[in-house]
Simulated scan of single mutants.
Amino acid sequence: MKNGLEDVIAAETQLSDVDGERGRLVIRGVSLDDLVPGETYEGVAASLLDGLMERPVTATTLRSLLGAARVDLYSHITRLDEGLLALPPVDAMRAMIARLGDGQDLDTALHLMAAPAVFLPAILRLQAGQRPVTPDESLSQSADILRMLTDRMPSAEQTAALDAYLVTISDHGLNASTFASRVVASTQAGLTSSVLAAIGALKGPLHGGAPGPVLDMLDAIGTEANAHAWLTDALDRGERLMGFGHRIYRVRDPRADALKNALSPLVRSGQVDRERMALAASVERAALAILKERKPDRPLDVNVEFYTALLLEALGFERQAFTGVFAIGRTVGWIAHAREQALNGRLIRPRSIYTGPLPKVA
């Protein structure tokens, strides 16, 4: 972090870069196009944490350490009382994470990375009247999440699809939740404090709470034949088309195509509702055509929310759980940014511009 006013507008980072003009996302020097498919959650997590913890970890080592952390955290499930289970899943998950220690070491980081992966499936199952499923430390993070959610072993295609999602959303520049994480870390508070602040920012509907309404839109449209008329009427009412447009990207969000491609094996193998996918494709085509006609000077294309909703639905997550799944993938990015800030930065103290009344001069 630099001195003076630059503290307010920029943070130096080696973690990720978002190029909105070119539609490019770089994570630790590698383009997202080269990370997905192929990279695992453990692989991208090891890359993001490289040089930031007290000892290095490889993807293989991280898989083993995360498995052990998931097993260790399962004992916390007994603390999920009726009050917590009455909350939305992300709020119950956040409350459980708040009970963890607030260190700066690798063990704290591992437990924070494993916590939402264990807590969210257990919360969802208990809220549905089902028994939670114990973790299997021999599995990868993605495979175990799906197994704990459904109580059955996921297919290779399902595991690869969730890996692709977790890799895709692992880090994305200085977004609202990551900035919140860095602000807290700049005070030298622990990693748990940083992650809790980030989850608080993530749950807002303008950030991580947005994918669910994409499915609401598809449900309302219903059939491919209704797409054009429904979307036109929505725009006439001044409504936003969910899953289209982005604050940073002036062209197509590269994460959208990464997730669209991750869905393809599920479609080919018959593990996803093909009618749902056909409806989504029709809505995408119609929306892009209408937006181009209505707003020719404003580039609006598909964003990550559109295919996030379709992918997570295909994997068996209810839409009220989407923000929590987002947190599973993004936690390692928050931790990496928090550590980078704590090691290399200074206290983040933006200047405010006072616009209120001034005292009268005597």
Rank of each mutant, 00 (worst) to 15 (best):
Q14F: 11
L15F: 11
G20I: 02
G20S: 05
V26D: 15
I27F: 12
I27N: 10
V36K: 09
P37K: 13
E39I: 02
Y41G: 02
G43H: 06
G43K: 05
A45W: 01
S47N: 12
S47I: 03
L48W: 03
L52D: 03
R55V: 09
T61A: 15
S64P: 02
R70E: 00
I77V: 15
T78Q: 12
R79H: 08
D81H: 12
L85R: 01
L87M: 14
P89F: 14
A92E: 03
A98F: 02
D105Y: 02
T108D: 00
L110F: 06
P116V: 00
L120G: 00
A122I: 00
A128M: 06
P132S: 11
P135T: 01
S138D: 13
D144P: 01
I145K: 00
L146S: 05
M148T: 02
L149S: 01
R152P: 03
S155M: 07
T159I: 05
A160P: 00
D163Y: 10
A164G: 13
Y165C: 12
L166P: 04
I169K: 13
D171N: 11
D171G: 09
G173K: 01
L174H: 06
N175T: 06
S177W: 13
S177T: 13
T178H: 08
A180W: 08
R182C: 05
T187S: 14
A189L: 13
A189V: 06
L191A: 00
T192R: 03
T192Y: 00
V195N: 02
I199V: 13
A201D: 09
L202I: 06
K203L: 04
G204P: 03
A210R: 04
G212T: 00
P213M: 13
P213W: 07
L218E: 14
G222S: 09
T223V: 05
N226A: 12
A227T: 08
A229Q: 15
W230C: 13
T232M: 10
D233V: 10
D233G: 11
L235Y: 08
D236Q: 12
D236T: 11
R237E: 15
R240Q: 15
R240V: 15
G243R: 04
G243E: 08
G245Q: 07
I248L: 07
Y249L: 10
V251R: 12
A258E: 11
L263C: 15
V267K: 05
R268Q: 15
R268G: 11
R274C: 06
E275L: 12
M277S: 04
A280L: 08
A281C: 06
S282E: 15
A287Q: 11
E293F: 06
K295R: 15
L300P: 03
F306K: 07
A309I: 04
L311N: 04
A314P: 07
G316K: 13
G316S: 14
Q320F: 06
F322Q: 08
T323H: 04
G324K: 01
R330F: 07
A336N: 07
R339P: 03
R339L: 14
Q341T: 06
Q341N: 04
G345S: 02
G345D: 03
P350D: 09
R351N: 09
G356R: 09
P357H: 12
P359E: 14
